[in-house]
Design a protein around this nucleic acid. Sequence first.
DNA 1: GTTTTTGCAAATTGTTTGCAGACCA
DNA 2: TGGTCTGCAAACAATTTGCAAAAAC
Lengths: 137, 137
Amino acid sequence: MDKNNRSSTYVLKQAKLSNTKIRKSILEFLMENHGPFSIDEIHKQIFDCDYATVYRCIKKFEECAIVSRCDFGDNISRYEYKDLNHHHHHIICRSCHKISTVEYCFLKEMEKMLTDQGYKDVSHALEFFGICQECQN
Amino acid sequence: MDKNNRSSTYVLKQAKLSNTKIRKSILEFLMENHGPFSIDEIHKQIFDCDYATVYRCIKKFEECAIVSRCDFGDNISRYEYKDLNHHHHHIICRSCHKISTVEYCFLKEMEKMLTDQGYKDVSHALEFFGICQECQN
DNA sequence: GTTTTTGCAAATTGTTTGCAGACCA
DNA sequence: TGGTCTGCAAACAATTTGCAAAAAC
């Protein structure tokens, strides 16, 4: 269940994805645990499931906007369940790579807040994505 | 020359990196062209230079904060010269992957501005990086 | 019963490494 | 000259693909 009380089965149905044992397991893991998680971490959690399958499922989930991909600059893709009612960002330690959640959302203020919390040398990476005019036709 | 009139040789010296032909070429390419560029794109521009060398140079540049790495969610790392006087972000078309520069810097307003410019379905990815308290000791 | 998904193994792609020779200071 | 950088080839790691069997609808 997510914060809107939606079950994994419901979410899969909504996305028009077939409800297989493995998809259900992966989605449930992502819904119940606050990531983001690497493919490796997801694979470890799912009993008897091939890496290729994890990749394929996550790709589907991403296409259907069920999960979103995070990049923390270490060449490892991480994924988390896209809880629509819970917009947030992350703060990653450049040394130990611990991931924490940042609830607040204004750049300058956020950086100051993180500094106040004890983080040193805070920076950020921000990219926008959209469909450009040429591609809309 | 960058916006502060700094030459590639000067920038390398400042960073305490030796001034080799290849490093100079790569840095000049990055200073004169507004990226970000993939390793592949950089490699194409540098005459008679091995991929391994491009990777090694860029890694050095990144360590010395001469370039910064961008991730656009397609598993390709891109790099651009870190022009200190030119803080900006990017807008990437989810369809054709064209990269444009976003000069303005406030999230909501930026997204609105991009929509006004004709981009559809604009979203963003933002991550913070810092050194957490435990790692500061 | 047809379509979609999965496991397996192999291929592909992006990145890193060891080493000997070339280059820089 | 001594240390650093480079090219080459090989290693490695993350991701993707083809195909036949299994599961979903």
